[in-house]
Design a protein around this nucleic acid. Structure first.
Lengths: 227, 227
DNA sequence: CCAAAAGTGTTAACGCTACACCCATGT
DNA sequence: ACATGGGTGTAGCGTTAACACTTTTGG
């Protein structure tokens, strides 16, 4: 550190670095996002689950750590979204936050509210409350990315259980894109992409023909035009 | 700051925040990136121009400030790329860096090496030297994004002067995508997108038919499938 | 008149969209 | 037998990719 200018700049900087997670799931054909209810600062407001990163971890690792804390899940689709840096985004300190977004399968997950928060809940993204900080803005950004991801990559797979029917898959797409899709055309495309394989099992649910169950032939992330 | 946990975390964090710019241009049908030669730390190595962000500015503003310092240019296409956070990416301190990328028009720009650096140069991206920190990695990432941008948005316009010929435009695409394009199909697509308007001027250059000059009918950023 | 880049249309293959009926099951 | 969602094919249209010759200029 022989350069005094750099040293001076270093000394001056007084900024904290955080991560905020946009954790999505689809349930009953509706898109949900995980929110927490804040204690202490901004008490009672809903916000994205997040936290400061540690000196020795990457931001991605921090996001994963927090995802696991909130949902118990690991090894999911998790992707850096954007770094938000408005100086006044946090009224209490200069905090720059890197947002991540994660997709988790239909969540009959035991949410375990950590002592850090007053509550944890899945909120339908169509009717979000006013969130703390710039989190409404972050969620808006995340929704756009999600739409893109689901249309152009195989990320949808992360929202489904191990085995699923084609109708369930289609419902995931419809929930995220917020529009109806044609059943036959949808199946043609899925078939063309060729990432699914039939299982011998079927799913019987209600008074109608049982549906074939499918699984992924590979779980690698791919860029594939789907819709 | 009533929560002692948060306070403790705050107190512990010892991370600096920087920005690194990937500034591209196309010259003579080749893609270039702006690099600086380092003084002091890692002396003699080439690196992306960057610097620490200030307590009162956004990261984007920092990127713009640095772009202006290096090239004198402002008001260009400038976009956040990714935030790189490997704990060991900077051997001297924990520095997390948000990379930006910028496109500037064919650069007969007076590069003014700031006293911070030993040299500033345009490097052809096809033969980059080994760069400082994780900058080779950042550039790789930036190249991918650039390919995508040029294919699916009107970002190419940022690489051209006010008025330009269709062949010049095509050369920009060919340089970035690193492949030849069909002249007639290219022009059909450009025409369909409808963002250009003819001027009455032509450009005469060498012993052949002069080319019509075009300009943009709008400079707004748009998402448009082009190639 | 020759060299060099500018400019210009057509055809064939492919992909996308719209659309309607039979199937397997539970009650 | 009927109600419910599962499952399947085709025709028309638009988009893309491949391809070659004429035009305008300077030398």
């Amino acid at each position: 550190m022989s350069n005094p200018t750099v040293q001076a700049e270093h000394a001056k900087q007084n900024i904290k670095l955080a991560v905020d997670n946009c954790i999505f799931t689809v349930k009953d054909g509706k898109l949900f996002i995980l929110l927490i209810k804040m204690k202490s600062k901004l008490q009672g407001m809903w916000a994205l689950p997040g936290g400061l990163i540690k000196d020795t971890e990457t931001i991605g690792a921090a996001a994963q750590r927090i995802l696991k804390q909130e949902t118990g899940l690991s090894d999911n689709y998790l992707e850096q979204l954007y770094t938000f840096s408005q100086p006044n985004r946090d009224p209490f300190a200069r905090v720059i936050s890197t947002a991540y977004f994660a997709l988790i399968p239909d969540a009959n997950i035991e949410l375990k509210p950590s002592p850090k928060y007053d509550d944890v809940r899945w909120y339908p993204v169509k009717k979000l409350p006013e969130l703390a900080y710039d989190h409404n803005h972050i969620v808006k950004y995340a929704k756009q990315r999600l739409e893109w991801k689901i249309s152009y990559t195989n990320a949808a797979w992360s929202l489904l259980p191990e085995k699923f029917t084609l109708t369930e898959l289609q419902k995931v797409y419809e929930a995220i894109l917020n529009k109806k899709l044609d059943k036959r055309n949808f199946r043609k495309k899925i078939d063309k992409v060729g990432l699914l394989k039939e299982t011998k099992q079927t799913k019987l649910e209600g008074a109608h023909r049982p549906a074939k169950l499918y699984e992924f032939s590979s779980k690698k992330k791919k860029i594939v035009e789907i819709i």
